[in-house]
C-alpha cells in the first residue's frame, strides 16, 4: 500500500459518499445518470467476487463491502425510492454500446482465461467507460449541480491517483498490470474535459454549464 493508492481509495470513497448523501439529503436524483450508477454497481459486483474466495486484508475486504453496498444503495435510490425525480429523458446513453464491446474485449484480452479473471477484466474495462452515460447526460442537459461536479471530480481523481500508484509500484516493486493501467489511462482521459471545466468554472464559484 502506498500513499497514492490510499489517497485514491479515499477519493473514491468520498465520491461515492457525496453522491449517496446528495440524493438522500435532497431526496432527488436530478442530473444523475442512473445508467452510470448501474454500470458502477456491476463493476463492483464483478470485481469483488473474490470477497468470498481470497482474504487480502481487513481494509481490502471492508472497502469492497462498502463500495458494493453504497453503489447498490445508490441504484436503489435512483430507480426506486426517488424514481419520480429520475430524469430518464436525458439519461439516454445506449449502454449496450459499452457493455458488448467491453464484454467481448474481456474475453480476448485478459491475463488468464478463467471465469474469475475474465470477470475481473470485464470489470476493469467497464469501469473505464462507466462514466460516459453521466457525462453524456450533462452534455445533454447543458449543466450540472455543483455537488454533482464535486462527485465527478473525486471520482475522476481516484483513478488518476491510481495511475501514480502504478508508477510507484513499478518503480519500487517491479509490479505492473498493463490491463489496469491502460484502462485507467482511458478512464482518466475521459474526465479531462470535465476537469478543465471544473477548475475554470466550479472552483471559481460559477455553475458548471456547457454551451448546450
Amino acid at each position: 500500500m502506498n500513499i497514492f493508492r490510499l489517497a485514491g481509495d479515499v477519493s473514491h470513497l468520498v465520491a461515492i459518499i457525496i453522491l449517496l448523501l446528495k440524493i438522500w439529503k435532497t431526496r432527488s436524483c436530478a442530473g444523475i445518470s442512473g445508467k452510470s450508477q448501474i454500470l458502477f454497481a456491476s463493476v463492483f459486483v464483478t470485481r469483488y467476487l473474490d470477497l468470498f474466495t481470497i482474504f487480502i486484508s481487513l481494509y481490502n475486504s471492508s472497502m469492497k463491502i462498502i463500495y458494493i453496498s453504497c453503489s447498490i444503495a445508490t441504484v436503489y435510490l435512483v430507480y426506486f425510492k426517488f424514481k419520480a425525480t429520475y430524469d430518464g429523458n436525458h439519461d439516454t446513453f445506449r449502454v449496450e454500446f459499452l457493455v458488448v464491446p467491453v464484454g467481448g474485449l474481456s474475453f480476448l484480452v485478459n491475463h488468464d482465461f478463467s471465469p474469475m479473471e475474465i470477470l475481473w477484466t470485464f470489470s476493469i474495462y467497464l469501469e473505464s467507460v462507466a462514466i460516459l452515460p453521466q457525462l453524456f447526460m450533462i452534455s445533454k442537459t447543458g449543466e450540472a449541480e455543483t455537488i454533482t461536479t464535486h462527485y465527478l471530480f473525486f471520482l475522476g481523481l481516484y483513478r488518476g491517483l491510481y495511475l501514480i500508484n502504478w508508477i510507484w509500484r513499478y518503480y519500487f516493486e517491479g509490479f505492473f498490470d498493463l490491463i489496469a493501467i491502460v484502462a485507467g489511462l482511458v478512464q482518466t482521459v475521459l474526465y479531462c474535459d470535465f476537469f478543465y471545466l471544473y477548475v475554470t468554472k466550479v472552483l471559481k464559484g460559477k455553475k458548471l454549464s456547457l454551451p448546450a
Binding site: 481509495d9 470485481r47 473474490d50 481490502n60 488468464d112 478463467s114 516493486e173 498490470d177 489496469a180
Partner: peptide, 10 residues
C-alpha cells in the same frame, strides 16, 4: 513474482 491473478488493489 507478483501473482497477477490475486488482485490486491480495489
Amino acid at each position: 513474482e507478483y501473482n497477477v491473478f490475486q488482485h490486491d488493489e480495489l
